[in-house]
């Protein structure tokens, strides 16, 4: 997470900013995109943490529960029978 932000700051200080007079300066661009980048990185870590939590739980087969009538969240599902 920090790597992207640090590289942004490091490269940004030496960036060539002579593109066009009306394009926002590096500082303005940085102020706009940094919150977006931080949100994206937090989202990324949140997703990875959620996946890790889900995958580190013992599977249903390990718990000795059959797959046939158990829903994804672990609750029992009504088994419909064909008439």
């Amino acid at each position: 997470m920090l790597l992207v932000i640090i590289s942004l700051i490091l490269v940004g200080t030496s960036a060539n900013d002579s593109l066009a007079a009306s394009i926002p300066s590096f500082a303005q661009r940085f102020n706009f995109t940094l919150p977006l980048i931080v949100v994206l990185l937090i989202l990324m870590f949140f997703l990875l943490l959620k996946v890790y939590t889900r995958e580190s739980q013992p599977s249903r087969s390990q718990k000795g529960i059959s797959d046939s009538n158990v829903k994804g969240d672990g609750s029992k599902e009504k088994v419909r029978e064909k008439v």
């Binding site: 942004l8 590096f26 940094l34 980048i37 994206l40 990324m44 997703l47 990875l48």
Partner: peptide, 21 residues
């Protein structure tokens, strides 16, 4: 969810490049 995490990371790098260059 793993895929979405990769997309979020990819977009963050893309935005960093956009800011720098």
């Amino acid at each position: 969810m793993r895929d979405a995490a990769v997309w979020a990371g990819g977009l963050a790098i893309l935005l960093a490049m956009v800011t720098m260059f």
